[in-house]
Amino acid sequence: MIAKTLRYFTVIGALLLSFANVNSQVLQEEQSLEGHWKFSIGDNEQWKNPDYDDSHWQHIRVPDSWESQGYSDYNGFAWYRKTIRLDIVPSEDLILIIGSIDDADEVYINGRFVGRTGGLPPHTKTAYNQERRYLIPQSYWQKGSNLIAIRVYDLYNNGGIMGGPVTLNSNLSNKILNLNLAGNWKFAVHNQAGAHEPNYDDSNWSSIEVPAYWKSAGWPDYDGVAWYRKSFTIPHELRDKELILLVGKIDDEDKTWFNGTRIGGVSPSGSRSSLARGLMGSYQSHRTLRAYKIPDSAINYNGTNTIAVRVVDTGLDGGIYEGPVGIMTKEQYKKFEEIVRKEPNYFDVFWEWLNN
């Protein structure tokens, strides 16, 4: 893990604590998936299902191009399948990391769609140099055999799961969230008048998994404004604590409200973006971890609280795409800051802190 720079700034009474160019997911590898996978060229929707008989399929090395393994000059669809065993059902969502796939892909776990990167026919778009990070909900796994199926489309030249790592990971940052808010949120595209108000009726909105790009949840070509909303209660043990809301990384811009009170945001205009800049002063809102102080006056300790996030995507991917997403006390956040700034032995520090 490469250590990154943590920055702070205060804007209009709201404290924004941001990581610039930080990998905000503190990941631990649970299982390497590199090695031999079942493989077949062609395309068949049934190949995503765990009960499909793939005993006649060939084996192929992952990661490596399929051209180097006997499929020279082949362009088009192909599928990879790998069965893994879990002695217990994971207690949390897991993250599948794939270094690179040439050109586009879809991922399924036990027949259930997880996500897509790049564009498949008829709207082909390469993502050959983009690392894949797929959040796999805990509910997708089962005790015993679990099937990972990856549908790949290659436009030209080399194709396949080209680069590592190819690993299944847990997110250790979830262990220091006092309240984990990842999972199902309400979602709507386009402007929604009054959506920042806590009593706004979002019952007809769609649902979306957070964190994840919205293109993987049914809006593959949408650029523009979208809204996220999440309602929840504050645990009694957090009463009278200074609380920080983490909204993960957002592509590209956001304005965030807590019970109707604006608590932060990152945008390319005005002072809100003053510390969301990378090398040479380039604006990098999509690489900034949102962390906003929640005013105590805005918190409802005796009922429902609602977060509303207005996101503007200016092109390509969009959405609240990477965690952590949840609430930490100020004390927890300081520990989180210390952990991610350690290099190269911050995992040792993390586990020492967890066990003490």
Score class of each variant (00 low, 15 high):
325 V>N: 04
202 D>T: 01
177 L>S: 03
353 W>T: 14
269 S>V: 10
320 I>F: 11
243 L>R: 00
271 S>M: 11
274 S>E: 11
218 G>C: 13
62 V>F: 03
182 A>F: 03
160 G>C: 03
54 D>W: 03
163 G>P: 00
230 K>L: 11
268 P>V: 06
249 K>P: 09
224 G>Q: 10
63 P>C: 01
277 R>P: 00
121 P>G: 07
355 N>S: 12
32 S>I: 04
242 E>D: 15
210 V>E: 06
294 I>H: 06
153 Y>I: 08
158 N>W: 06
282 S>Y: 04
3 A>F: 01
17 L>F: 06
203 S>H: 14
100 S>M: 08
190 H>T: 13
165 P>H: 00
241 K>A: 08
81 R>W: 05
348 D>Q: 13
201 D>K: 00
123 H>C: 03
337 E>P: 01
223 D>A: 13
95 I>V: 15
73 D>V: 08
174 N>W: 08
167 T>C: 11
51 D>A: 14
234 I>M: 15
302 N>S: 13
278 G>S: 12
352 E>K: 15
253 E>A: 15
190 H>G: 01
278 G>M: 12
310 R>F: 06
271 S>Q: 03
13 G>E: 05
298 A>V: 05
334 K>Q: 14
77 F>S: 00
306 T>P: 15
135 L>N: 13
283 Y>K: 04
348 D>N: 14
210 V>M: 07
302 N>H: 13
305 N>P: 00
1 M>E: 09
96 L>W: 07
143 K>C: 14
22 V>N: 11
326 G>A: 08
144 G>L: 04
24 S>E: 08
172 L>F: 07
226 A>W: 02
258 F>S: 01
79 W>Q: 02
317 D>F: 05
81 R>V: 13
102 D>W: 04
66 W>I: 00
100 S>H: 13
236 H>C: 01
170 S>W: 01
126 T>Q: 10
308 A>E: 06
110 N>H: 09
271 S>T: 10
180 N>L: 08
246 L>R: 12
42 G>Q: 09
